[in-house]
Design a binder for these strands. Structure first.
Lengths: 165, 165
DNA sequence: CTCGATGCAAATGCTTTGCAGAAAA
DNA sequence: TTTTCTGCAAAGCATTTGCATCGAG
């Protein structure tokens, strides 16, 4: 089970690093999307998307900016925002909001669901996937005539370390 | 089934108006909370909370401000924000974020769950409650050592009217 | 060359805060 | 009278945008 600490500044994850082949495939998808839409492949876009694809957790724009600036110190906020918007648009990134006013992003792999169990005290995030719940969601949506495209499912509580009972 | 349209400016709901007794009880809870915490019962707070308790949907600060200004045109944004914060703090309001950058609030009734099925095209919101899902959530949380306090469960898709298939 | 992308700074939109006057207790 | 609250305007943040310049195609 992957876990991750998110407490203000610190973000650690225990690794879901994608292998080179997968990262290459993601870059390809991005390139294809840009080409099809008359967008240009720039060093900044490649750098930001590389940092993003290689990342392991729920990154904020700041996290990402800090990472890419190690490589190219002149990259600005706007570029990172614009690149992440591009990645969202071509379906390679999910945008998440966990209460604080900050957008966090994570790589969108087709075959993965990322629902979250979040500790309200220490900020630990446990990702989960539950087929039964997914099925119930679909049923419920169908009952109301909806076709589901995506969902947000976040459980907030206290983790084992933070419970006092 | 309650439904509601949320599309930028327009917000309509088909009625979950609380009866006077319930509204009175909510006011009482608020008064008690304020007294216990050395806070004061002002005409503005009574007005904002009344408008809020009588509301039927997912109101933004603007919605609420517009409503209370019909009664008292001098009420300012800050007061509404501060009052809603107070209502959240004493457990009478839930704060929600549906993608757009706006906070929406709804009355927190103890015995109700408000999960949401949201049409990505027309913005229709259907509220739902599903005990099986609730149970699975609890089980899942317990398996990870968590005690759940609250959750966010939003299903996004296309409603019957907006589907093209 | 052309047109999209970048970086900067200014602008925006929502929310919070500081402060002097107003009003509960 | 004392302390909190209000309304206003200013400040804060995260995010977006305008524009001159840069660079991919």
């Amino acid at each position: 089970m992957r876990e991750e600490i998110v407490d203000g500044e610190l973000h650690e994850a225990d690794g879901r690093e994608l292998d080179d082949a997968t990262v290459a495939e993601l870059h390809e998808r991005l390139e294809k999307y840009m080409e099809k839409n008359g967008l240009r492949s720039t060093s900044q876009r490649r750098l930001v998307s590389e940092a993003f694809f290689r990342s392991t957790g729920h990154l904020s724009i700041e996290d990402l900016l800090a990472t890419v600036r190690e490589e190219d110190s002149k990259i600005g906020y706007a570029t990172v925002y614009r690149t992440l918007k591009l990645l969202k648009d071509c379906g390679l990134a999910y945008e998440r909001h966990f209460g604080d006013g900050v957008s966090r992003y994570e790589v969108a792999l087709e075959d993965e669901h990322h629902d979250h169990l979040i500790c309200m005290s220490c900020g630990k995030i446990v990702e989960f996937e539950n087929d039964e719940i997914e099925q119930l969601q679909d049923d419920l949506a169908a009952k109301h005539g909806f076709v589901l495209k995506r969902h947000v499912h976040e459980l907030y509580g206290l983790c084992g370390d933070c419970r006092t009972d």
